[in-house]
Amino acid sequence: MMDLWQCQAELVELYQTPSHKLNSYITEHLLPNEVFRRNAQDAVDRICSFLKEKCSMNARVIKTVKGGSAGKGTTLYENSDVDLVIFLDCFDSYSEQAQTRDSVIRIIEQNLERCRRSLAFQVDILPPRSKGELRRSLSLTIQSRRKNEAVEVDVLPAFDVLGQITDTFKPPPRVYIDLIYAGGKPGEFNTSFTELQRNFIKRCPAKCKDLLRLVKQWYKVYKKCLREMYQPTVSLPSKFALELLTIYAWEQGTGRAQQFNTAEGFCTVMKLLVQYQDLCIYWTEYYNFDEPIIAEYVKNQLRGTRPVIMDPADPTGNVAWGKGWDLLAKEAYNCLSMPCCMKGSEPVDSWPVQPAKPFDDPRFCIII
C-alpha cells in the first residue's frame, strides 16, 4: 500500500506542477545525481574489466558499449538503466549470434559465480525475465564493497557488424540487406546497432533531453501505479517508443530548435499518445529508400497496423509493437486536463505535429 501511495503522490506532484514551472520541476526532481552517476560508471567499468581480464570463454571482447539511459545521457535522478553491450569475435553473423548467444550468457554467468568471492565488488545475478526462452541478456546488480548503492546492469552479447564508428557514420546498405535476409524476429538483432541508437538520442540538445526526462518520469510513475493497482505483469509500450515519439515531436514541432517551451513539448507528446492509432513515424539517418530491397522492406513495415514507430537504427524493429497503448492514451488524456498542461483556464498550446510523418517523396504516396 505504501508503494501505491508513493507512486500516486509522485504522479500528483507532476500533475499539480503549473505548466510554467515544469523546468524547475525537472531541475529539482529529475536531473541525475552526480554521485549515483559515478557509481553507475564504476559498476560498468568493473564488469568490463572482469569480462576482458578474468572471464574464461572461447571469445575475445572486441569492444564494449554503454547503452540505456546512462549511455544516451537521459538518466533520471537515482534511476539509471545501464545496458552493457559486449561485442564478441565468436559471432561472425546474425545467425551465429542467435544460435550461440544463450550459451555465451551461461558461460559468463558461470564465470561470475566461480569468481564471486575474489571480485572487488559484490555481484548478484538476477533471474531471467522470461522463463523457458533463450536469453538475450544477463541481468546483474553490482555494488562496490565500499559503497551502499547498487546499480543494475544488463549485459548483452552482440555481433559486431558495424566495426569502429564515428558520430557521422552511416552503415553501408549491405549491413541492412543482410539483416533483412537473416529473417530474425522484429528487432532481434538491435543490440548490434546500440551505438547508432545511442548516438541518435545523444545528439539531442540539453533541452530536448530534459523533455525526454519529463516524459520518462510520467511513464515510469504511471507504470508503477498501474502495476500496484492492478497486476505486476500489466503490459505497456516500451520506454524507447516514448523516447522516439518525444524526439519526433521535438523535430517536427520546433525544427530541432535548441530552445523551446517545455510545457508545449510535453503537451504535444500527450496529444500524440491520445492519437496512438494513427502514429506512423520513421527516420532515414541510417537507412533510407535508395536501396530497393531496404525500401520495399521498410514500406511494408510502414503499411502495417498502427501504431508504427520505426527504430531509426534497425529497419526490422517497430518499437511501438505491443500492448497497452490504450492505457497510455487514457492517462495522457487525463494529463492534458491537469495544471501541468494548463495555462490558467486554457490548455497549453501544443505544436502542430501530425501523428503520421508526411512523405514528401512521390515514391511513397502509396503508403499513407
Score class of each variant (00 low, 15 high):
E251N: 12
A332T: 07
N300G: 14
P352S: 09
T166G: 14
A329F: 06
E113D: 11
A59R: 03
V82C: 11
F193P: 02
D278W: 08
V44E: 03
P157R: 08
A241T: 09
S192D: 03
T316G: 08
D92I: 01
M342N: 08
I366C: 02
V61H: 02
L212C: 10
G184P: 05
G324F: 05
T233F: 07
I247V: 15
R135P: 01
T74C: 05
T75I: 10
V123D: 06
E109D: 09
R135S: 13
F260W: 09
C267G: 14
A59D: 01
C115D: 15
P347S: 10
R37F: 00
T17A: 07
R303C: 13
T268S: 15
D178F: 01
D349G: 12
E188H: 08
P128H: 09
T75K: 01
Q231V: 11
L336A: 08
R60A: 08
D42M: 04
C115K: 12
R256M: 13
A356D: 03
L4E: 13
L22S: 06
Q354H: 14
N334P: 00
H29Q: 11
E149S: 14
W218M: 03
V221C: 01
P347I: 06
Y282I: 06
S192K: 00
A43F: 02
T305E: 15
V12K: 15
R46I: 00
G184W: 02
C7I: 05
Q122V: 09
D278F: 13
R198K: 14
I309Q: 02
A158R: 03
L76I: 03
V348I: 13
Q275N: 15
D154R: 09
K216P: 04
D92L: 01
V153S: 05
W5L: 15
Q301N: 11
T166V: 00
N288E: 07
Q217Y: 14
I125Y: 04
A257C: 11
F359S: 00
W283K: 06
V65K: 08
L138N: 05
K147Y: 12
V85R: 02
E228W: 10
G324S: 10
Y282N: 05
D3V: 10
S139H: 11
E34Y: 00
R303W: 01
I26V: 15
K343I: 02
W5T: 11
R203C: 11
D167L: 09
A40E: 05
L211R: 05
S80Y: 02
V234S: 07
T75Q: 11
Q197S: 13
R46H: 09
G184D: 05
C335Q: 10
V155G: 02
S56T: 07
F364K: 00
I309V: 15
Q110W: 07
V153K: 06
I177G: 01
N111F: 06
L279K: 06
F169L: 01
L162G: 06
L76Q: 03
E34N: 08
L156W: 01
K271M: 13
F50L: 06
L51H: 02
P32D: 07
V153C: 07
A241R: 03
K216D: 03
T284A: 08
Q259C: 11
S139D: 15
E133F: 12
I177L: 05
I177T: 11
G73F: 05
L244I: 12
Q275E: 15
Q258G: 06
E296R: 13
K223C: 09
E113G: 09
T191R: 07
D178G: 02
